[in-house]
């Protein structure tokens, strides 16, 4: 028996979530009294995973140049089989969410997604999951012998736990893929909402697209991603890819700064998983103040430029 984690990567570099799933898998393996195996597919340097507790790293090197869900699911299943893994841990990146259900079927495993904490019990195997768009949690028992556990982003966190690990090559068959990648259109050099530690988001309170210069500047000072409320993307002020909330992208950053956003329930549902929330809004009655940790009741056009100036000084100090 062992615990297998899939450490996802992109262009040969581990994603941040890879360290989170390794940290999580290590603890689960300890609780089950077994060992942890991390699987990488054309991933980064195995030693980066040793730092988070991966004693053994299986490295698949093949000519898959981009992610393919069917191929990855099959490889993860083959590795689980070879390692007699009863628990497989996968992250909640777009790729993780794509493969995990397929892995569960291949292993005939019960699958719990959106898990936010270590199992509260391992017999029965019970995990806490986000539900109702961050408005509640469900404590779920996974009753099958084999289990696939999907970890919600930035929930457990990455915890350094250096071990002396070993890496070995793992050769897996790649099945007929069915879905072929034709092209990838990805902004380079920008921080994505999915990866960002800090997200700076603005709403209809900013009046028009011409006023986003200060939002972008604030984001750049903080090394943050930019986001917006739904009406802002519906109005075409900002691209759809920036729309966050229940029907847009989910945000689970360490810091979320909301500027001129009222804090409608559908907006909050999508950003509530962020750890610290700041709101700047002229209306003290705006619902966002009930959800935020810190707030300024005031005009964005006055406070945001000041915040930029002071942060620049702070960063230099």
């Amino acid at each position: 028996m062992s615990v297998l984690v899939f450490a996802d990567s992109s262009e040969g570099k581990f994603k941040k979530t890879a360290f989170e799933v390794v940290s999580y898998g290590k603890k689960v393996a300890e609780e089950l009294g077994t060992n942890l195996v991390a699987l990488t597919i054309n991933g980064g340097d195995a030693s980066e995973l040793y730092a988070f507790g991966a004693e053994k790293v299986l490295e698949v090197k093949n000519d898959l140049s981009t992610f393919n869900a069917k191929a990855y699911a099959s490889i993860i299943n083959q590795a689980a089989d070879a390692q007699s893994a009863n628990v497989v841990v996968i992250d909640s990146s777009v790729d993780g969410l794509y493969v995990a259900p397929m892995v569960a079927v291949a292993m005939d495993a019960g699958y719990a997604s959106n898990v936010v904490a270590l199992p509260s019990s391992t017999a029965p195997f019970t995990v806490k999951r986000k539900a109702f768009s961050n408005k509640a949690f469900s404590n779920t028992i996974v009753s099958t012998e084999k289990k696939v556990i999907g970890i919600a982003k930035n929930s457990y966190g990455a915890h350094e736990n250096a071990v002396s690990g070993t890496a070995e090559a793992f050769s897996a068959n790649v099945p007929e893929m069915g879905v072929k990648s034709e092209s990838v259109d990805k902004a380079t050099g920008v921080i994505t909402i999915a990866d960002a530690d800090i997200v700076v988001s603005a709403g209809r309170g900013l009046k028009g697209p011409e006023n986003w210069g200060m939002v972008e500047e604030l984001a750049s000072v903080l090394g943050a991603a930019t986001a917006c409320s739904k009406p802002v993307s519906d109005l075409g002020w900002r691209p759809h890819s920036e729309h966050v909330g229940q029907t847009g992208k989910p945000v689970a950053s360490n810091l979320y700064i909301a500027i001129g956003i009222s804090g409608a329930i559908q907006h909050l549902a999508g950003i509530n998983a962020s750890k610290v929330k700041v709101v700047i809004n002229t209306d003290p009655e705006a619902p966002f103040f009930k959800a935020a940790d810190y707030g300024i009741v005031g005009d964005a056009f006055e406070f945001v430029p000041q915040l930029i100036e002071k942060l620049k000084a702070f960063k230099q100090a």
């Binding site: 103040f289 707030g295 300024i296």
Partner: peptide
Amino acid sequence: ASTETQSFEKPAPKGAVKLVD
């Protein structure tokens, strides 16, 4: 079924916002 909900819970109530000027 392969999973079962044992119980639901709501997030702990959040402390009040800290306002600064």
